[in-house]
Amino acid sequence: MQKHGGYSRLSPGLVLTGAITGLAVWLSNFPSLSHLGLSALTLAIVIGMVVGNTVYPAAKPWCDSGVTLAKQRLLRLGIILYGMRLTFAQIADVGATGILIDAMMLCSTFALACWLGQRVFKLDRDTSMLIGAGSSICGAAAVMATEPVLDARAEKVTVAVATVVIFGTAAIFLYPWLWHLNEQFHWLSFTASQFGIYTGSTVHEVAQVVAAGQGVSPDAENAAVIAKMIRVMMLAPFLLLLSGWKSRREVQQGGQNAGMRNITIPWFALLFILVAAFNSLDILPHSWIPPLITLDTVLLAMAMAALGLTTHMSALRQAGLKPMLLAAILFIWLIVGGAGINQLVQHLFG
């Protein structure tokens, strides 16, 4: 009887997030939206925010439990299943230079976000780190995966996701334009494949990388996607290192015993690596992979919808201009600094 009560308590919120996800997936198939790199995840949070700031407050007493489950449990499950998109063989395709470029871009961008956010713009630590994670790794998915490690509030997560949407969408149009300008003026010695690695190592979202790569050439698109997938694979060690840093900080601030009680191990990050490793063994029939990836997209979109539902516009307004300025500077670094790092590594090791 208790179980039945639990299911009935969770059902309204799960049905609501599921309905928003269905609408987001349907809209993402429209060419006019997909060409802009607007994935189902991005659309789900936008629709969730519209509903969350209009009709959802009236339905919250019935939906809150299911929405919370989607925002927490389904998110972690979605991150774990994200490993089905990756194989370790993709690393070999791009080679050591691609891995080095991705690692340098991740570390430099995240460090710059933390320093600028907290020292220059006086933002709180969580907002700075979430924006840094989104810019340096894989956009909204990285922001959502970092949230449970930091235990950040919903409005901070939404601010970070908003920066990914704005600047990642701008990159879709900017990168092909930069490629054609470089072809004309020969500023940098990029082949199409090298420009693809540059795109994959610096553009925010996977969907945005695909859209930007398509605007250059098939060779650039393939290299961009592989480089991006390697960046995505770096999400798990990033989360483990971030969790260890947070635990040490808690030990220093609250004493040894308090710190030991608060140690957070993001098990979903370890399982993410295990799923990617399992996928690399090529054991599952190939026909199973697309449905699993679709399921993963649905789970992550439901989590994004739940995030949107629990985000209030007043909180976003209170965040102000500073997060966008931070994200803008990181965007400039990704373009300019990323080009420099790509050229340097390709020159030294290419």
Rank of each mutant, 00 (worst) to 15 (best):
L69C: 13
W245S: 08
L106T: 04
W245D: 08
L188W: 01
V164F: 09
L150C: 04
I79G: 10
G338Y: 04
A220K: 03
T311F: 12
T17Q: 03
A44M: 13
M324D: 11
A328Y: 02
I289F: 00
G18D: 15
S287T: 03
L181I: 05
W26T: 15
L16F: 03
L270V: 08
V15R: 02
L292C: 05
F272Y: 03
G200I: 09
A40Q: 07
H35T: 13
V157R: 04
H4T: 12
I80M: 12
N342D: 13
L16E: 02
S247K: 02
Y7T: 08
G98Y: 06
Y82H: 09
F173D: 07
G98I: 01
H186M: 06
A192T: 09
R125W: 13
T311Q: 05
I137T: 04
L344R: 08
A40S: 10
F238L: 02
G320I: 03
A303H: 05
H204L: 11
L299A: 00
I172R: 09
D93E: 13
A207G: 07
V165M: 12
W288F: 11
G338F: 08
A258S: 06
L271R: 03
G254D: 02
H312S: 14
A277F: 07
V50F: 07
V46Q: 01
I265A: 06
F173G: 14
L330T: 13
R76Q: 14
L27M: 13
